[in-house]
Design a protein around this nucleic acid. Structure first.
Length: 605
RNA sequence: GGGGGCGUGGUGUAGCGGUUUAACAUGCCACCCUGUCAAGGUGGAGAUCGCGGGUUCGAAUCCCGUCGCUCCCGCCA
C-alpha cells in the first residue's frame, strides 16, 4: 500500500507516529516558509504541514503542488499548537509534519469546484458540465457520500434478506418483451438476423419462473430498462430491489418489507425519523378521496374533506348544481394560512392557488378565510352564500380554527382528485410542513384490479396481468370487473411510490379469465406468454412479491430531489451519456452483420 | 410529440440596441509572507457572449432556426 492511514482517521492518540498518507490536494495554503496542504481521500481530510527549514526538499515539492494533484506524504503526526486546532475537521486536532512528499500525479485545473460543495450548492452548476466530467463530480464529498449510502443500502438489504433465507438469482439482460406497458429497448440478434432481444423492464416473469422452480424466497438487485422519456425521477436504466416469495399472503410480504425498510432506515440513515410505525394502511379509494392520489404524502394533513352535503344546501349555485349532478364539493383546510393577511394579500394568495387549481383542470377555486377574531365576518367571495348555521356546520366538518384558509373544490370526481393532488404539496411547502428528515411511510392497498381504458374500450390491469384479485372479489371478474380489487400493495413515502407488488395469480384458470378482459386474444397470449402458462401447468406454489424503486429509496434517504444524484453514471434527459458520448452511430460493418439498414429522416446521419 | 426555463472568461453571475477596450465574484498564474484552514497582500493572464441565419448605420442585447442542459404535460408504475 502506498499509504499507512486514511486521511480521515488520525487523532491525537497517534501523535509521534510516522505515517504515510496518499490522496488529492484539497487545498493548499502557501505562507512562504510554511505550506499547508489539506490532503483528501474518501475518508476525510488531513492537514499536512511543510516547513522549509526542517524539510527543504519536501517544501520545494509542496511548492509545486496544486489543487487535485495526487500526493504521497510521509511525516510525523503532531498535535497542533495551542489555538490552531480546527474543530470543523474530525482530524483537526492534529496535523502531519511532512518529511517527504512525492507527486504521484499532477492535475489540470478542474472545470468546477471539487473541494467546495457549499459553493456549488449556493451558486449552482450547469449539470452538463458535471455530467461531462462525472469522474470529477463523483470526487466531491457529497457525491461520495451519496454513492456510499447507496452501497450501504444495498449491502444492508443483501445481508438482511440472506439472513431471512432468500437467495439472490441473476436473471438475463437479453430477454424477451415483458408484459409491462413501457416501450422496450431492443437489441438485434446477429446469430438470428432480423430478430431482437428486449432488455427487461423488470424481472417479473423470470421471478415467477423461479417460484415455479421452487426457490421460494428470491431477490435480486436488478437493473431494469424502459425506453420512455426521462424525468427527474426516471432514468432509462434503473435499479429495482426485486423480490418474490412462495406460500405467502399479502400480509406476509408487507410485514417483511416494512421490517426491512424500517431497519434499513434506522441503520443507514439514523438521522431520519419514521413518522408512523407500523406504517398506516390506506385504502386506494380513501387515498384518492382524501389525497387525490394513490401515493399520498402523509407528512402533513391537508386532506380533502367531503362537504357536499352542506355545500349542496348553500346558496352558491355552482356547488348546488354540481351536487345535484352527483359531483362532490370538497374542502382543504390550510391551517393559519389566512392569518393576518390583508384583503389584498389574501386575494393574491387565493389567486395563486387558483392558478394551480386551474392548471390541474379546475374551473376555479373558491375560498373562505376565517378571521382571527371570533366575531368577525368570514372573508372571501362565497361566504355570503352560506347561512350562519351552514358555516358553523362547515367549520365543524373540517375542524376549522380562526385564521384558517378553507379552499373549496367542486367538479367531476377525477378533476377534484387532480386538483387535490396539485394543491396539497403546494400548500404544504408554503406552510413549511415538508421536513426532508421525516419519512412518512404508508401502504396503499385494495387497488382496483382493472382501470377502464376509454381509448381502447377495454380494461387495463392497474398493476399487471399477473396480479391476483382479492379472494372475495373473484366472482366479480364475470359480473363487474371494474369493482374487483387486486391484491396489490404499494409502499409510499413522502409522496413517492417506493415499492409496489402483489400476490400473483398461480391458478391457470383465473389467468385465462384475465386475458380477454384486458383485450388479449388467447392465441396471442399463448404466443407472448405461452412459456408462463405452460410453466403454470407444473405445480405452481401460491406466491407474491414486490419491487422497490431502489434509486428512489436511496434518493429519499440521501434527501436528494433527483435520482441522478444517487446514480454514479446517469443519463441526461435525452438519454445520453455526456461523458462517453453514448449513444453513438454504429459502424457500417456492424450494421451489415446484423442485417440492419438505417432509414432515417432527411437531416440525420 | 407538446409547453416553460437556461446558455456571456475555467465556474457562478451582471450587462438586454450605441463611451463595452464586455463588468463583478471566485478560480487560475507570478511574486511576498512560518500557524493557515473560504488564509492574507500585490500584480497578471483569461470571453470573437452555444451555433447558424436575419433585422439594423450598429447586435451579447431584437427576430427566426438549430444544438445542449433542465423542469413539466403526454408517455412511463
Amino acid at each position: 500500500m502506498l499509504k499507512t492511514h486514511t486521511c480521515g482517521e488520525l487523532r491525537p492518540e497517534q501523535a509521534g507516529q510516522e505515517v504515510v498518507l496518499a490522496g488529492w490536494v484539497n487545498r493548499r495554503r502557501d505562507q512562504g516558509g510554511l505550506i499547508f496542504i489539506d490532503l483528501r481521500d474518501r475518508w476525510g481530510v488531513t492537514q499536512v504541514v511543510v516547513d522549509r527549514d526542517s524539510a527543504p526538499e519536501a517544501h520545494s515539492v509542496a511548492d509545486q503542488a496544486r489543487g487535485e494533484f495526487v500526493l504521497q506524504v510521509k511525516g510525523i503526526v503532531r498535535i497542533r499548537p495551542e489555538g490552531s486546532a480546527n474543530p470543523d475537521l474530525p482530524t483537526g486536532a492534529i496535523d502531519v509534519s511532512a518529511s517527504e512528499i512525492k507527486i504521484l500525479n499532477n492535475a489540470k485545473t478542474p472545470p468546477f469546484y471539487i473541494n467546495d460543495d457549499e459553493r456549488l450548492e449556493r451558486e449552482g452548476l450547469d449539470e452538463s458540465i458535471r455530467m461531462k466530467h462525472r469522474y470529477l463530480d463523483l470526487r466531491r464529498q457529497k457525491m461520495q457520500k451519496n454513492i456510499v449510502l447507496r452501497h450501504k443500502t444495498i449491502k444492508f438489504i443483501r445481508d438482511y434478506l440472506d439472513q431471512q433465507n432468500f437467495v439472490e438469482v441473476e436473471t438475463p439482460i437479453l430477454f424477451k418483451t415483458t408484459p409491462e406497458g413501457a416501450r422496450d429497448f431492443l437489441v438485434p440478434s446477429r446469430l438470428q438476423p432480423g430478430k431482437f432481444y428486449a432488455l427487461p423492464q423488470s424481472p417479473q416473469q423470470l421471478k415467477q419462473m423461479l417460484m415455479v422452480a421452487g426457490f421460494e424466497k428470491y431477490f435480486q438487485v436488478a437493473r431494469c430498462f424502459r425506453d420512455e422519456d426521462l424525468r427527474g425521477q426516471r432514468q432509462p436504466e434503473f435499479t429495482q430491489l426485486d423480490m418474490e416469495i412462495s406460500f405467502v399472503e399479502r400480509e406476509d410480504v408487507m410485514e417483511l418489507n416494512e421490517k426491512l425498510m424500517t431497519q434499513l432506515v434506522e441503520t443507514v440513515a439514523p438521522e431520519k425519523t419514521i413518522m408512523h410505525k407500523p406504517f398506516p394502511r390506506i385504502l386506494y379509494k380513501d387515498a384518492m378521496e382524501q389525497y387525490g392520489t394513490d401515493r399520498p404524502d402523509i407528512r402533513y394533513d391537508l386532506r380533502a374533506i367531503d362537504v357536499s352535503e352542506i355545500a349542496g344546501e348553500s346558496g352558491f349555485s355552482v356547488f348546488v348544481k354540481n351536487v345535484q349532478a352527483g359531483q362532490p364539493v370538497k374542502c382543504i383546510r390550510a391551517p393559519k394560512m389566512a392569518g393576518e393577511l390583508s384583503g389584498t394579500q389574501l386575494r393574491k394568495v387565493a389567486s395563486e392557488l387558483e392558478d394551480i387549481a386551474k392548471k390541474a383542470g379546475a374551473k376555479g377555486l373558491a375560498y373562505m378565510a376565517l378571521p382571527l377574531e371570533e366575531d368577525a365576518e368570514v372573508k372571501g367571495p362565497i361566504g355570503k352564500f352560506f347561512t350562519v348555521d351552514q358555516k358553523l356546520a362547515l367549520f365543524e366538518a373540517v375542524g376549522a380554527e380562526p385564521g384558517d384558509l378553507l379552499l373549496f373544490m367542486s367538479d367531476k370526481r377525477e378533476v377534484v382528485y387532480s386538483v387535490t393532488e396539485a394543491l396539497r404539496p403546494m400548500l404544504a411547502s408554503q406552510l413549511g410542513l415538508l421536513d426532508p428528515n421525516t419519512l412518512g411511510f404508508c401502504w396503499v392497498i385494495d387497488f382496483p384490479e382493472f382501470m377502464w381504458n376509454e381509448d381502447e374500450k377495454r380494461w387495463d390491469p392497474s398493476q399487471h396481468m399477473f396480479t391476483m384479485p382479492i379472494e372475495e372479489d373473484l366472482h366479480l371478474l364475470d359480473t363487474d370487473p371494474g369493482a374487483a380489487r387486486g391484491s396489490q400493495y404499494d409502499m409510499v413515502c413522502n409522496g413517492h411510490e417506493v415499492a409496489g407488488g402483489s400476490i400473483r395469480i398461480h391458478d391457470r384458470e383465473i389467468q385465462k379469465k384475465i386475458f380477454p378482459l384486458i383485450g388479449l386474444e388467447m392465441d396471442h397470449a399463448m404466443e407472448q406468454f405461452g412459456h408462463i402458462l405452460e410453466a403454470f401447468e407444473y405445480g405452481v406454489p401460491p406466491h407474491g412479491g414486490i419491487a422497490w424503486g431502489l434509486d428512489r429509496v436511496v434518493a429519499l434517504l440521501a434527501a436528494e430531489p433527483n435520482i441522478r444524484e444517487v446514480i454514479a453514471f446517469p443519463k441526461t434527459q435525452t438519454g445520453a451519456d455526456a461523458m462517453a458520448g453514448a449513444p453513438s452511430p454504429a459502424e457500417p460493418g456492424q450494421l451489415a452483420e446484423l442485417g440492419i439498414k438505417l432509414d432515417l429522416p432527411e437531416d440525420d446521419e
